[in-house]
């Protein structure tokens, strides 16, 4: 593909990009791949199956969204699967604790690609009001790639529906012709996220080297000056 072609693709990915005048009010089939992507994505985005997976308060709003007043089946999302193998979308609906992050990562690894993660509510996005706690992960995006963030505490069902629409838009932009737009059109299965380990604190194996360095440093620091404030400042 030429450079020009790449630019054009990027433009298609950008939802803000203006539609050229000659293409307005007409369907343009510029390549077979793009047509295929459009049809394929139309099918995918209208049949996202979420996983039945409630964590905390937000899960109740998620149930309210699935119930009759807001009715997420209008988006083709009513098939809520209890098994990660059959699910496309993981809605992280609530506080992710250190104890729970291990099963969450395991469930994510078990989901078949293409898979999406929607972080619902302040807690799932960044720890929320419970962030300062000793057992709370400050945001699931430290472990999993998150596609859509829905802020709020809790987001109302309508806010969540807006998040679903955002996710559909994102799916629409993923191109079969462009392997870089999504991880799973590349070669072979993607790598599993390494499971966190419940040690003295939760340990992300990807940060093991950091742990070793810090463990040594922390020991010396603690011996030298236990004053927490000065430490914080020094670090900031």
């Amino acid at each position: 593909m030429t450079d020009n072609g790449k630019d054009f693709l990027r433009e298609l990915h950008d939802p803000e990009a203006p539609v050229p005048p000659e293409l307005q009010s007409s369907v343009a089939v510029t390549s077979f791949g793009r047509l295929l992507s459009t049809v394929y994505n139309w099918g995918r985005r209208n049949s996202i199956w979420p996983m039945a997976f409630g964590l905390a308060c937000c899960a109740i709003e998620m149930i309210a969204t699935a119930a009759s007043r807001f009715d997420q089946s209008r988006f083709g999302m009513e098939v809520i699967r209890a098994s990660p193998r059959q699910a496309d979308l993981m809605i992280i609906s609530g506080t992710v604790t250190k104890k729970m992050v291990v099963p969450i990562v395991r469930l994510y690894n078990q989901m078949a690609e293409p898979k999406y993660v929607l972080a619902m509510g302040a807690c799932a996005i960044g720890g929320g009001p419970f962030k300062e706690g000793y057992n709370v992960v400050s945001g699931i995006d430290k472990y999993l790639p998150v596609d859509v963030y829905v802020p709020g505490c809790p987001p109302t069902p309508q806010a969540l529906l807006y998040g679903f629409i955002a996710l559909q838009k994102k799916i629409d932009q993923q191109m079969l012709t462009n392997p870089n737009s999504v991880p799973w059109y590349g070669r072979g299965p993607s790598e599993a996220v390494p499971l966190p380990i419940l040690g003295p604190d939760v340990i992300d194996p990807r940060q093991a080297h950091m742990l070793r360095r810090r463990a040594g440093a922390a020991g010396q620091e603690a011996a030298a000056s236990p004053a927490a404030e000065s430490d914080l400042e020094a670090e900031a």
Partner: peptide, 13 residues
């Protein structure tokens, strides 16, 4: 305004 869903939290939140 509850319609705040975004794709990125590092810059927008």
């Amino acid at each position: 305004d509850y319609e705040l869903a975004s794709y990125d939290r590092t810059t927008a939140h």
